[in-house]
Design a protein around this nucleic acid. Structure first.
Length: 499
RNA sequence: GGCCGCGUACCCAAGUGGCCUAAGGGAACGGAUUGCAAAUCCGUGAUUCGUGGGUUCAAAUCCCACCGCGGCCUCCA
């Protein structure tokens, strides 16, 4: 079955086939910046890349997936485009220093707010932790293959080499202010990915560039490759003076270093299309002399929350950890973030999270009864569903249709060879990745709640044994007030935190 | 100003020219079950696809206009 995917570069759905004759897929994903915890919008993009990778594996490809962790301190302000503004790492440092003062620093965070490397590694570790809970395969592999999640601060020599090559080939120049810029006019395909061709770009429309820097450039759209700056928090020696690399440069250098000059797939959020990915294409193609860098570009649209743009000021801003702390299972969050087609805006809701939890619980109990079944031969509902499931994923990663196929199998009567049926269900889960992470995370607060709940449940058991229904109901109300939902079953009472 | 995407039931969401009097999930409602609930199981839901035109034998699907929402135009998933 051929995988078909939408390619931002050609604005059309194309058949996917890897460059390598052995079928190994090279896949680069733009990962997080680590000045702060990743939010659920970030994770929608990362998890969609993960679903793509797992879907390719289900279709028999071997995938070499690389995702960077950007740990260089880039700039915050409007004129950041040209290296001004404030270093984000410095902002993060201040935030940590303030948290330290007010005693709000997360447990175990003994970090020096003045050390940008310590800040970056603090947030990188937290990212990896969240990502592994959510089943981001590349983060799981990173434990044994750290090179799959490269850090720009460790790849500066490769970036310098790339800049040197671009200068040599006439695609970059050192301006009067000493900054190395990429010359967009030297690359005729500039603008092909985003549609922002040079004649259509309106200088300064985004309101983020300064006249002072524009003056020294050959073309207003020229972008920075290396900025000499002896005062920057993180800086490295280079032929152009001590300074730091441009933001687009990192991905080009690391993709080349780990995957080669031409790769099969490249993913990111929709906001990466311009300028980040456009600039990557320019750098990579001009450095390699090849017409293409990534064959296919995969972009995930943004996530909204309860119908609105997610923002801290609206109070609808969530990180993965925020939700885990509320008792949300990683499985439910994962499913909620990937169930909507990656090319439409998704609407994250708490109700949606509950819907997902219910679906996962139904699938889990279907798996339990399937595992207990012994009789039957031939194809049953799950084996049939797997065919539709794979077809749906091959159709530009139609996860919603794939989920519907699984749901249909759940409601059909059990039939078929139980071993093959179980294998089919597990194959579907190899993409959805929910069974192995369907438990709320442990924490001191959760343990405390658990002991309280157990004590109340014991009291309720005693009351029910004595047929003291008033007392039993009173205890149940108390449990509800604690945010706990109980389930009475033949095996006794179980409970979970209501989300 | 330019480029790009979206608008389907109370909510989430698939479907992009005939198999659509529109998949799947949730909520709600009815039934089974329960001390009563919750959970679970069974059943019920749009003659209609933002609005108005048009093309076609045939439109949620194509075209035009309008309304609404979102992304980018050098921080951003």
């Amino acid at each position: 079955m051929t995988m078909r995917l939408y390619n931002t570069l050609t604005k059309s759905i194309e058949n996917f086939s890897p460059i390598a004759p052995d079928g190994t897929v090279t896949f680069y994903s733009c990962g997080p910046t680590v000045y702060d915890d990743a939010h659920i919008g970030n994770f929608r993009s990362f998890l969609n890349a993960d679903i793509l990778r797992r879907a390719l594996e289900l279709h028999g490809f071997r995938v070499k997936h690389v995702m960077n962790i950007t740990d260089v301190g880039h700039m915050t302000e409007d004129d950041a485009a040209d290296g001004g503004g404030e270093d984000k790492m410095a902002v993060a440092g201040r935030r940590i220093a303030e948290a330290k003062k007010s005693g709000k620093l997360p447990a175990g965070a003994e970090i020096d707010p003045a050390d940008p490397y310590a800040i970056a590694s603090f947030y990188a570790d937290r990212f990896l932790e969240d990502a592994r809970y959510l089943g981001l395969q590349v983060a799981i592999e990173e434990r044994t293959h750290p090179e799959l999640m490269p850090r720009p601060t460790r790849c500066v020599p490769q970036m310098i080499a790339l800049v040197e090559q671009l200068i040599e080939r006439g695609h970059a120049y050192v301006a009067k202010d000493g900054v190395v810029y990429f010359s967009v006019e030297s690359f005729s395909a500039y603008g092909r990915l985003s549609g922002n061709t040079l004649d259509k770009l309106r200088e300064g429309e985004g309101g983020r560039i300064s006249a002072e820097h524009q003056a020294v450039k050959r073309h207003p759209a020229d972008f920075m490759l290396w900025k000499p700056d002896p005062t920057h928090l993180m800086r490295w020696p280079s032929p152009w003076g001590e300074g730091y690399p441009g933001w687009h440069l990192e991905c080009s250098a690391m993709a080349r270093m780990l995957l080669g000059d031409e790769i099969d797939l490249h993913s990111g959020g929709e906001d990466n299309i311009f300028p980040h990915h456009e600039c990557e294409v320019a750098q990579s193609c001009c450095a390699s002399g090849r017409p293409a860098f990534a064959r296919m570009w995969f972009h995930t649209r943004h996530l909204q929350v309860e119908g609105e743009k997610m923002s801290k000021s609206k109070g609808n801003f969530f990180t993965a950890r925020d939700l885990f702390a509320k008792g949300v299972t990683p499985a439910a969050l994962r499913l909620e973030l990937v169930r909507t087609h990656y090319r439409t805006n998704s609407n994250f809701t708490l109700q949606g999270l509950r819907d997902c939890q219910r679906m996962i619980d139904r699938w889990s109990s279907a798996r339990t009864s399937l595992a207990a079944r012994s009789a039957g031969t031939g194809a049953g509902p799950f084996q049939r569903a797997l065919i539709e499931f794979k077809e749906a994923l091959a159709d530009d990663l139609n996860v919603a249709r794939a989920i519907a196929a699984l749901n249909t199998a759940i409601t059909e009567d059990a039939a078929g060879d139980p071993v093959a049926e179980l294998a089919a269900l597990d194959a579907m889960n190899s993409v959805l990745g929910v069974f192995e992470r369907n438990e709320a995370l442990q924490s001191a607060a959760a343990d405390d709640l658990a002991s309280k709940v157990e004590a109340l449940l014991e009291r309720r058991r005693a009351a029910r044994a004595a047929k003291d229904w008033a007392e039993s109901d009173r205890v149940r109300d108390e449990l509800t007030a604690l945010g706990v939902r109980i389930k009475d079953g033949p095996q006794g009472t179980t409970w979970e935190r209501a989300v």
